[in-house]
Write a protein that binds this DNA or RNA. Structure first.
Lengths: 167, 167
DNA sequence: TATTGTTATACTCTATAACTATA
DNA sequence: TATAGTTATAGAGTATAACAATA
């Protein structure tokens, strides 16, 4: 969005990006890393998100639509195209004659696993530009930021780790 | 992509996201903030990027295609749709009878300015979850990371601030 | 001949509305 | 009657290939 970097002069020798600029650029950079790795397997971002969700779930079309924030008709088409490529399968629900469960094929799983592994090493390589201490500090701050934001939005960032409602 | 948060236990009371998970989630969060603000003006991400570029330039279709990493035919169609909505105009190049220059209309500029302002306040509000000292530290680390990455990729993060080739 | 831009065609992605089958 | 999913339709966004106009 910004064209000029808005280098809010630190008056030290090193120019520094503004906080908003920095976060925006970092966001686009990481996003593009995932896009490129997905594209290596001819996966669009939405197909990649679909496969990512299916890594540990067998949702119905309706559940998928909610998770992807898409209309059920869009979701149906998305699953169609993935199924046509042999990445996912539809299975009838044993309990509801109207519903289907979508799950990964072995091929779909190998694609998403490989893309995820490559993306992870991309991000690690990016972080390697910082010395170890800075890297740890950055991770801690990012985590703290996300935890605070999730708390405000009443989102559970750590499902499984006792959602809070316990003793 | 990750379903489980991979809370690499810090063995302290507070769970912390893994570095890759944290950066990925932060990236998606910031990306979604821009998407939502753009959507308030019925702008897609690619239309928003187009208008963002035009804020301080009047590129040709070919130049736009390079900046957006799109084919020139895709760019032509993108500009068509933006022009049909009155957001941009094509003007013939004074020096090359084949080329056109694309620029913002007043309407297009007001849309992109407003979306940018709202996005900026979203990111500032997000950062407000951290105490001021942490916020400054995070910005510095993000900036340092991007500067190092840009240097490696031989990209100039600060155009105008003397591209280096000087005295 | 080479370059700039547009057009024709095809496919993915998305939503709305209408439909089928089951509950 | 309500819900789960699909299909019909329309439009944005993208690429490839073919084209027109200009250089």
């Amino acid at each position: 969005m910004r064209a000029e970097p808005t280098a809010s002069g630190t008056s030290s020798g090193r120019p520094e990006l503004s906080p908003v600029d920095g976060l925006a650029r970092l966001s686009f950079l990481v996003h593009r890393m995932l896009e490129l790795r997905a594209a290596e397997h001819e996966l669009s971002m939405i197909q990649t998100r679909l496969l990512g969700i299916l890594r540990d779930r067998r949702p119905t079309i309706n559940e998928l639509a909610a998770l992807l924030a898409l209309d059920k008709s869009s979701t149906s088409g998305l699953v169609d195209r993935a199924a046509r490529r042999g990445l996912v399968v539809r299975d009838p629900s044993p309990t509801d004659g109207r519903a289907v469960h979508v799950s990964l094929t072995d091929h779909g799983r190998s694609l998403v696993d490989e893309a995820a592994a490559r993306f992870e090493s991309d991000v690690l390589a990016l972080l390697d530009h910082l010395p170890a201490a800075d890297r740890r500090e950055l991770s801690t701050l990012v985590s703290r930021l996300l935890v605070a934001h999730a708390a405000e939005q009443q989102i559970d960032l750590f499902p499984g780790r006792d959602g809070g409602r316990a003793t």
